Simulated scan of single mutants.
Amino acid sequence: MASRTPPDGFVFIKDSPKGPGIASRLGISAETYRKWRMAGKGPETFILGNNVCARIETVDAYLRELEQAAQRALPESRPPEPRIRRTKPAGHRALAAA
């Protein structure tokens, strides 16, 4: 039976005895990562035997890109939203103090 551990410097989608897999490193489930992969999201991967595999450096670089993108998207870059005045509906009456 073939070994279910990735070669040194590589990771599979799921965790292995060698350490966390791609999904764990991204903080998502293996099922979510599979959906991302089919949609073209996430780090570059390839098939190694019967397993989806990625270089650890590739996964770490993807995480760095996400971090840098989040730092660039500062709240000041979004224009302020206009304030909306709320009016009382027609026929609204104030409650009389009893």
Results as ranks from 00 to 15, higher is better:
35 K>S: 15
91 G>D: 03
74 L>V: 14
57 E>V: 08
58 T>M: 09
84 I>Q: 03
85 R>L: 07
34 R>P: 02
28 I>V: 10
47 I>W: 10
74 L>K: 12
38 M>Q: 15
18 K>D: 13
78 R>Y: 12
87 T>I: 01
23 A>N: 02
35 K>N: 15
70 A>I: 05
39 A>M: 10
56 I>K: 05
32 T>W: 03
77 S>D: 13
95 L>F: 08
28 I>C: 06
64 R>A: 15
40 G>K: 06
8 D>A: 15
43 P>K: 01
5 T>C: 09
94 A>S: 10
37 R>V: 07
45 T>R: 03
80 P>H: 06
60 D>M: 11
7 P>S: 14
56 I>Y: 01
18 K>C: 09
57 E>I: 12
74 L>Q: 09
72 R>S: 12
69 A>K: 13
66 L>A: 13
61 A>L: 09
49 G>Q: 07
71 Q>S: 08
43 P>N: 05
88 K>L: 01
49 G>C: 11
83 R>N: 07
19 G>V: 04
85 R>N: 09
77 S>W: 12
67 E>P: 02
80 P>C: 11
31 E>Y: 10
63 L>P: 00
32 T>D: 07
97 A>N: 11
70 A>L: 11
69 A>G: 08
44 E>A: 15
76 E>W: 08
77 S>C: 15
44 E>W: 10
44 E>R: 13
12 F>C: 04
1 M>I: 12
87 T>Q: 00
48 L>S: 14
45 T>M: 04
73 A>D: 11
44 E>I: 10
61 A>E: 07
36 W>T: 04
25 R>P: 01
89 P>C: 08
89 P>Y: 04
58 T>D: 11
96 A>C: 09
28 I>A: 05
50 N>H: 14
27 G>M: 09
16 S>T: 10
3 S>W: 05
65 E>I: 13
14 K>G: 06
51 N>T: 14
36 W>I: 06
12 F>L: 07
80 P>Q: 12
